Simulated scan of single mutants.
Amino acid sequence: MAQTRQSSPQSPERLTRPPDAEPSAGPADGWDAGPIGPFLAVDPVVDRLRALRTAWSPADGVAVFNRVYLTVTEEIGRAIEAGAFADRKAATTLDVRFAERYLAAVDAVAADVAPPACWRPLFDYRRHPGVLPLQFALAGINAHIGHDLALAVVDTSRALDCTPADLEDEFDRVGDVLALMEERVREELMPGPDLLEVTDPLTHLLGCWSLERARDGAWLAARSLWQIRRLPALAEEFAERLDRSVGLVGRMLLTPLARRP
């Protein structure tokens, strides 16, 4: 994350509502994840992602991202079980709320309903022969980090009756896992030298997007949404503009570059 942001100190009471906090207000339309339960496990999310992996063709662009995201979710689940997070409940809730955003987009498309704007490019281009697997993976990561992560932080803050600042350590730890996975994605899906010679613009295109910048933007957006949560119209407009701007970046990442067979 940005060097100017400092992690919140750990304490047993850090997920307790501040004494002067006002009662929770309902979120603005467009960033409510629905009913909030007392605790959520990661396993059902992993099961759902595995089911999608089986249902989709490996060449499907959404399936490419889904495979990457499944690996990330499994890794975070193992880290939670191993005690890598100081607050297991906060980490699990954030991870599940995060995943729910992607799965909601999948369900929307399956129901013939438009998904959030950030996800539309990936679903629109999922079978385009000119888009490379690496582009599909990064476009999905862009949508999920740039938009979904910010809203998931707000969802989790409401669920645990805390503030985004209380979740900063979990946010950073999840972000570290995502950064490692992005490196692996680039290594595994980067075209070979021959193809890169043909699609030289790929290097420039991928250089225009940074996971670190996307994480910083998500953190700022989460804090901003939390500050304006009692101004529903403003919060809704902010979330909508965030959605559209992330979608625009995703469409750029999916610029067809590969030669058609």
Rank of each mutant, 00 (worst) to 15 (best):
V62K: 11
A139I: 06
R260W: 13
E188V: 01
D124R: 14
R158G: 01
L15S: 09
R244I: 10
L242V: 05
P256F: 06
D29Q: 03
P191D: 14
V45F: 10
R50L: 12
L180Q: 03
S7H: 14
R97M: 07
A137D: 00
R244D: 08
D176T: 02
R101H: 05
L257W: 12
D161K: 14
C162G: 00
L206Y: 03
G207I: 09
G61C: 06
D200F: 12
D20C: 07
A239L: 12
P35V: 12
A218H: 15
A99P: 01
R260T: 14
E212N: 14
H147R: 09
R158K: 10
R251A: 07
E81I: 05
E74T: 07
F123I: 00
L189P: 02
P58V: 01
D95Q: 15
Q3T: 05
A222Q: 01
P201E: 12
R5Y: 08
D107I: 03
Y102C: 00
D216E: 15
D20P: 05
A258T: 07
L70S: 10
L149W: 13
A108S: 11
G140W: 01
L15C: 02
W209P: 04
L195N: 13
P121A: 00
V198R: 15
T199L: 15
G250Q: 03
S157R: 00
A108I: 07
D43I: 06
S210N: 04
P58D: 08
R5D: 12
V154W: 09
L103I: 03
D95K: 14
R230Y: 11
C162M: 04
P18Y: 15
M252S: 05
P256V: 14
L231V: 13
A86S: 06
A159H: 02
P256S: 12
P256Y: 06
A59Q: 11
R186L: 02
I80D: 02
E240I: 02
R53T: 09
F238N: 02
D243Y: 05
Q227F: 10
E100C: 04
L211M: 10
V109Y: 06
I228K: 12
W119D: 00
A104D: 01
P133W: 06
L205P: 11
G192M: 06
S224C: 10
P133C: 09
P121H: 01
L70M: 09
Q10K: 14
P232A: 00
L257R: 11
P23T: 04
A86Q: 03
G83H: 08
Y69P: 05
A33Q: 06
T4P: 10
A233S: 08
R229F: 03
R223M: 05
P44V: 09
A41D: 11
S210R: 07
L180R: 14
D43V: 13
A165Y: 05
V64H: 12
D43Q: 15
P201Y: 14
G146H: 00
R184I: 07
A143R: 03
E182V: 09
R88E: 04
P201K: 15
D216R: 15
L149K: 10
D32K: 03
R67M: 10
P193K: 12
C162H: 08
G83M: 08
R126S: 01
D112V: 15
L202A: 02
T4W: 15
L151H: 10
H147M: 10
E183P: 03
V68F: 13
P121C: 01
A150M: 06
L70E: 15
H144I: 08
R215E: 06
L178S: 02
R184M: 00
A214E: 10
V45P: 12
